[in-house]
Write a protein that binds this DNA or RNA. Structure first.
Lengths: 210, 210
DNA sequence: TTGGTCATGAGGCTGACGACCTATACGGGC
DNA sequence: GCCCGTATAGGTCGTCAGCCTCATGACCAA
């Protein structure tokens, strides 16, 4: 789980991005700050793997904050205007995006900079290739070993298909096989019944309850 | 469930807000558009109860779009700069906020304009009072009739406490009482077992799996 | 006082669930 | 060729879940 902090004085943007990252299975927002100095103070008491920073904040200097924290916490700059890229690079940011970027690309960038990449040093194809490598969320150790068929069982379970009979009908297999898959799922996810498995499936992002 | 469409050319903002509204139990984003004309086209094929519109979009005129759709779909303007309030009101917007507004307030505004209020006609205390009336999400009919104790059972269930024994221990009541509460919950939520009840509890926002 | 709801508790019944074991077929790797 | 993981399927067995009815005390409103 990658811990993210957000610095942006537009609360609606910060809350929305926070929810969006929380919906991903491998990222979690552990704090937000409305200004540069607040960001520095936040990171002093709340460790995080990466910071997402808007340069245009009413309450303080974003570039100065990046200089202070950039050495210990990689910074991804996300801003309205794109002419600040050079200044962000000079201050030590690891990546730079406009707010027009798709969420999936920001998520890939988060994983990439946490892995140690400096995206601002890359250009064009190198950048695209690096981001492509990090498109997929890193699943929990347990979830990572689930087979395709087990994931299908979990997805049905998380949609409210709970009885063995309905699961079997939905997957066109016998009830015995469903039970075998469930037993395997329980073992891999360290749970003991299908209710816990459904909750865990939703938590891991393997399936949505909606 | 209130269906919301978002018009904003900053994809990250639109996706974040979409996720944030999806996390609320009574709102859902059914479409996004990057420009005014796209918004008009979107609403022509996708009905919605309310539109959230940013006035500063690269691809088209937000004000013109509001004039076209404002009569049929109430519009909440959410923008970076606040000097456009008068123009938004003239075009027929129902509400106006900066992007610094907390999500909870935007959610209250969504519920208020769907109920027919014109927030732009209100000032100061009247506005605060109206928004305060809509702070609480309107729960599903089934969920609305749940008792406090039944909600507590559901919250434990959605956290992965699935066995009757653990539920009884967690609530300091007998296993028999837990079974009785569960039977009542199944009936009210129109589900047939605790797995479906847990999924439904997460979907309704009564509890979070995290 | 009466009636309603809520939270609590109980007994009995039936079927489903979960644990454990076995087995076949089909892959890919060594 | 052999082993291992996956998907499939079957069997047995003990436990537990879900459903039925019933009862009690607290609380509140008509």
């Amino acid at each position: 789980m990658i811990r993210v902090v957000i610095a942006d004085d537009h609360q609606l943007f910060a809350e929305g991005l926070s929810q969006a990252l929380a919906a991903l299975p491998d990222t979690r927002v552990v704090g937000t700050a409305p200004s540069g100095p607040d960001l520095v103070a936040l990171l002093a008491r709340q460790p995080a793997e990466v910071a997402i920073v808007d340069l245009e904040m009413a309450g303080g200097d974003g570039l100065q904050a990046i200089r202070q924290i950039g050495a210990t916490t990689p910074v991804i700059v996300v801003t309205m205007h794109t002419q600040m890229a050079a200044a962000a690079a000079e201050a030590g940011a690891a990546a730079f995006f406009s707010k027009g970027v798709p969420l999936a690309q920001l998520a890939a960038a988060i994983r990439a900079v946490v892995a140690g990449h400096k995206l601002l040093d890359l250009r064009g194809e190198d950048l695209s290739a690096t981001l492509a490598d990090y498109q997929q969320p890193e699943l929990d150790p347990g979830a990572a070993s689930l087979t395709q068929r087990e994931i299908e069982v979990l997805q049905l379970l998380a949609k409210g298909v709970s009885s063995t009979e309905e699961l079997a009908d939905g997957l066109f297999i016998s009830q015995k096989t469903v039970k075998n898959h469930l037993a395997s799922i329980f073992s891999k996810l360290a749970v003991s019944d299908r209710t816990q498995a459904a909750v865990e499936a939703i938590r891991l992002g393997l399936a949505k309850p909606h």
